[in-house]
Design a protein around this nucleic acid. Structure first.
Lengths: 241, 241
DNA sequence: TGTTTTTCTGACTATTCGTCAAAAAAATGA
DNA sequence: TCATTTTTTTGACGAATAGTCAGAAAAACA
């Protein structure tokens, strides 16, 4: 018993080492510089051993995407736990997402690849399902708050929680992706894309009549509370950089 | 003279043939199935000849992205020419973009790759600049209408044209990209992402106080006019599919 | 300590990118 | 027309990388 437990643990640890080195390599050499030989060299295992864990390069990238989504999901989840009005909780989730985007910009970038069918198709069904369910989970946290909002009268009864989620999700995804492209946003007159995103989200929420409206509430104060109560460590880390 | 003119024409034609076959291959076999040998075979030229036109695979994909952006830009441009209120003109541009997304879904998908630094970096500076300037042109058409809007009093004088553009651009980009992923939007409660996008854009525009507001104008009627006056062929084509 | 089972290895094959010397074709000119 | 020069095309080749697998090494077992 003890032996197989140890072996399982060792396997898990090795898997994590592989992912860690792969992540570093992707960071320093980019996707095209990430090769199986290099991963083998860095982990000090042979290529065969790497292939026992991951059937192809795409599988490794998929595993990295899953790690990213897990971390993101966790920040979302913590944001959703904020004690306050439903719209404040949505904002807290947004803050979590922004923190993630600021702290791990390159990880978000690497996920983009898995949006392309050609790459995703090479990965195991198991991981595909895992990633999809994580995305679904994020959406559900969101939609849950929207439903709370309707129950508490913060949202009109005829609202459609899913389409509210979808628009916020789309605009965040769009902003974070465009930001990472080398289009010079500053030259186009966008000095602070995070600020622009934040404002757009408030505009959308006002448009959906999610109360209290921006004009009726001090969301700066809410932001302060979110920082202190929910993400103290992340904010500290961000500021120390 | 005649000879070198003919040769130049032949070169251009060959280049177009290569791009056409590359596009077909990408469509049928995906990015990973698009190889230089296959392109050579399909075009009935040798690999060396292909390499005289394009220094690498990424260069071909970049050239395809540029073609896509040119086509998109043209639809934008036509939309902007709509005779009407400034907000109607913005809507007409949105209609153009939706038409493009519906008519050429796979081309939009292929552009995603060029968002990734790792790929873009392998392409010639010349094409990089060309693509960037096309994106810039799209933004300028947009921002120009926003400035018209301010001049005509349709937008408050303190508006920021660039941030309005950026939010619309981000949400469109986000929706079109997420749509092409195999996340089952229908299961998440999004039956019609185009409709959702359209509504979100109106919400944003209302939020920016771009008059006439959605409630003050019959935009359905405007849409009808845009169809008839600006994009008759594209709509016919869409309906015949 | 010998046997069995599991794990690991890196040489090997296959694929694809990108190059380039030589062949073919086209242009030139007497 | 045909020999010479210039341009274009070709596909065999070298290099890099993905992915495999028979045998070596290590671990577990008895």
């Amino acid at each position: 018993m003890g032996i197989s437990a140890r072996k399982q643990r060792e396997k898990r640890e090795r898997e994590e080492l592989i992912l860690k080195e792969a992540r570093d390599l992707r960071l320093s050499k980019g996707y095209l510089g990430l090769t199986m030989d290099r991963i083998a060299q860095k982990t000090e295992y042979s290529k065969g051993t790497i292939y026992q864990h991951f059937s192809c390069k795409e599988e490794i990238l998929m595993a990295l995407s899953i790690q990213v989504m897990e971390k993101r999901c966790e920040l979302f989840h913590r944001g959703a736990l904020f004690k306050g009005r439903t719209r404040e909780r949505i904002m807290a989730m947004g803050v979590g997402d922004e923190l993630f985007a600021r702290l791990f910009p390159d990880d978000l970038r690497s996920c983009l690849m898995m949006r392309m069918a050609s790459f995703r198709e090479k990965t195991s069904l198991e991981r595909q399902i895992r990633l999809k369910s994580l995305e679904q989970r994020c959406m559900n946290i969101f939609a849950g708050i929207a439903r709370d909002g309707m129950a508490q009268g913060d949202l009109p009864p005829e609202s459609n929680p899913e389409s509210i989620c979808f628009s916020l999700w789309s605009i965040s995804f769009g902003v974070y992706t465009l930001m990472r492209t080398d289009i010079p946003l500053a030259e186009l007159g966008i000095d602070d894309p995070y600020q622009a995103l934040n404002q757009s989200c408030h505009t959308l929420l006002d448009g959906y009549h999610w109360t209290p409206l921006l004009s009726e509430w001090d969301y700066e104060k809410s932001l302060e509370r979110v920082r202190k109560e929910i993400f103290p460590d992340e904010f500290a880390r961000l500021e120390s950089e």
